[in-house]
């Protein structure tokens, strides 16, 4: 026989308790970031297996695609990559000479030596997050020494930073998220400013730029290293539009990120050298993937 009324305390009472619990959780998460560990546990043990399962068929098709591509195609690709590698090698030679010269000059000036960096390649998981946020999930987590606030870059420039870490995955906020800001400078004249994300369009905005600032479309923005979160001198974006409305204090400056925010599949996680030492103490297992810079 079915009971006509549900057993236990009244439904409304339970609803009120759980609604209150939700509010407490939200405040704790938003105001004090107390719940990162709980989020990490849920992500590691429940959500990550689901993400992994979803990714399996996609990975399989990619693998099958590679296996079935013709030898001719592979040979062509190989030749192209070899040429690219050669070109990169040549320009690296020049850079290493320049770097040595730079170090020498810095020494003569008595300036601080540059901090070294260490990198690890991570892959994006092909899954969808809330369409109103600009976030991605990568397949490296605290097991690999990833930490909150870590910079994420791709082959072209800065992509974003890590905001949540689980055991073997992490969520990164892209620089185009409306809640993201990154300290930058203009490569041409070292004018320092901050680039804010504009949301869905994937663009950046530079705020508080006076009308007479020396800034032109096409200028490259690089990280300034101020704030200590992003390493200095990585490309961030290019100025695409400058609007100087009459009667307003600041110009409206829009930049396009140079990183392929919506297309990159491999990304690089960057450790500054001091942080890297700390991390290797925690997890000495990871060696070969780290290319010194």
């Amino acid at each position: 026989m079915q009971p006509l009324f549900l057993p236990g305390p009244s439904v409304t009472f339970r609803a009120i308790v759980l609604l209150a619990a939700s509010v407490v959780v939200m405040v704790a998460d938003h105001r004090w970031q107390h719940l990162e560990s709980m989020r990490g546990v849920l992500e590691s043990y429940i959500i990550y297996p689901l993400r992994y399962t979803i990714n399996l068929p996609i990975d399989f098709f990619r693998w099958a695609d590679q296996g079935l591509s013709s030898q001719q195609f592979l040979l062509e690709e190989n030749a192209r990559l070899k040429e690219q590698q050669l070109r990169a090698q040549v320009s690296l030679q020049k850079i290493s000479v320049l770097e040595r010269e730079n170090d020498r000059l810095r020494e003569m000036l008595g300036a601080q030596p540059k901090v070294g960096e260490r990198m690890l390649v991570a892959e994006l998981l092909v899954i969808d997050l809330d369409p109103n946020r600009q976030q991605v999930v990568i397949n490296k987590g605290s097991n690999q020494g990833v930490y909150i606030g870590q910079p994420v870059i791709d082959a072209w420039g800065v992509m974003g930073q890590v905001i949540h870490v689980a055991d073997s995955s992490a969520t990164a906020m892209l620089i185009s998220d409306p809640n993201h800001a990154i300290p930058v400078q203009i490569n041409r004249n070292e004018l320092r400013t901050t680039a804010f994300g504009l949301g869905c369009g994937g663009q950046l905005e530079l705020r508080h730029i006076p009308h007479n600032a020396d800034i032109e479309p096409g200028d490259l923005l690089v990280t300034s290293g101020l704030g200590g979160r992003f390493p200095a001198n990585y490309p961030v974006g290019r100025i695409v539009e400058i609007d100087r409305p009459v009667g307003e204090t600041f110009a409206r400056v829009i930049a396009e990120p140079v990183a392929h925010l919506d297309r990159s599949r491999e990304v690089l996680l960057v450790w500054r050298e001091e942080a890297a030492i700390m991390n290797t103490e925690i997890s000495p297992t990871q060696g070969p993937a780290n290319a010194g810079k």
């Binding site: 409304t12 609604l19 939200m26 998460d29 993400r51 809330d130």
Partner: peptide, 22 residues
């Protein structure tokens, strides 16, 4: 779990879901 999966603030979907199920 939905909050964790979608990267929203913890408790946001929980609040909505509890209201709906109530």
């Amino acid at each position: 779990l939905l909050d964790v999966a979608q990267g929203t603030i913890l408790g946001q979907h929980a609040l909505g879901l509890v209201l709906v199920i109530w």
